[in-house]
């Protein structure tokens, strides 16, 4: 191709050349990008997003499974959590909800004191405006705690980076850094966070980070008599939690919000939100 002289390169010719060259570059670049994006991860951890290019999954990624079919609503987990983490009255790092279904279609949900003292033997109709006067069809308990979401809005919104994620996937709050604005509390779709009335900083379930980094289990898992709470390393294919995740159908809370919770549930009912 010879270099055109000034006379030869009319405006029309110039524009045509630009379009030709530009589209060629665009197509080639698109092919390169598509190939790069289609590159599948070599090794994966179920439920975890693929690691960044050139990086591997950390050796330890913690996960939590709540088997709602096993929970008996004793409240041991809540008491253990409160004692272990010195959780202030009126707040909960973990709590248990009781769902009761009546034949007329009514659903009663309650969690007195977060289930700390367990639940009464009576059917939960005391908070009904009128008498239900029926025996419930069915019911179950659902323990809740921080979901330690992979794409969590609480870390996204924190103005000073006081909310952060450890390499093991645990979402924590740096109380030395937190300014106590409460934006993370608002942004958590699950009500897992609160502003601590004494420290005036955001507080939440840490999966007992101080215990798990010493090889212990979180207090709630330790004290659950029904094995409704399973905690472990999802990066290790031989761990109990990996086995459970591989052999069960699990759900997460409010999946439509796209926060990608690391706390997963077995036997979640559509009424649970």
């Amino acid at each position: 191709m010879t270099t055109p002289t000034r006379e030869e390169l009319s405006r029309r010719a110039f524009l045509r050349k630009c379009a030709e060259q530009g589209s060629a570059t665009f197509v080639f670049g698109g092919m390169v990008l598509t190939t790069a994006m289609l590159r599948l991860p070599q090794e994966g951890v179920p439920g975890e997003p693929p690691p960044k290019a050139g990086k591997k999954h950390p050796e330890v990624i913690y996960g939590f499974v709540v088997d709602t079919t096993k929970c008996i609503g004793c409240g041991s987990c809540v008491r253990a959590c409160k004692a272990e983490n010195n959780v202030p009255d009126g707040y909960n790092r973990t709590w248990v909800e009781q769902y009761t279904f009546y034949p007329n279609g009514e659903v009663v949900v309650n969690s007195p004191k977060g289930g700390e003292d367990g639940f009464s033997d009576d059917f939960p109709d005391s908070n009904q405006p009128g008498e239900i006067g029926q025996r419930p069809d069915r019911g179950f308990f659902v323990p809740k705690l921080c979901n330690h979401c992979i794409d969590t809005p609480c870390i996204q919104v924190c103005p000073v980076g006081a909310s952060y994620r450890t390499e093991e996937g645990v979402v924590l709050v740096d109380a030395e850094r937190c300014i106590g604005c409460g934006y993370c509390v608002q942004s958590c779709p699950f009500g897992s966070r609160y502003l601590h009335p004494v420290t005036k900083t955001a507080d939440k379930c840490t999966w007992c980070y101080h215990r798990i980094t010493k090889g212990l289990k979180p207090a709630c898992v330790e004290y659950c008599p029904a094995k409704a709470r399973i905690f472990g390393n999802v990066s290790d294919p031989n761990s109990e939690i990996s086995h459970i995740l591989a052999t069960n159908r699990v759900q997460v809370l409010k999946s439509y919000l796209g926060t990608n919770p690391r706390t997963r549930y077995i036997g979640l009912d559509s009424e649970v939100i």
Partner: peptide, 28 residues
């Protein structure tokens, strides 16, 4: 009003000194 509301108003300037780039509040 923001300072009155903050749990730790003495740390307010952190939003400018150590802002979290993904936080809308940090833009303030």
């Amino acid at each position: 009003p923001l300072l009155m509301h903050l749990g730790h108003p003495e740390r307010a300037f952190s939003i400018m000194f150590t802002p979290n780039p993904t936080s809308a509040t940090a833009v303030f």
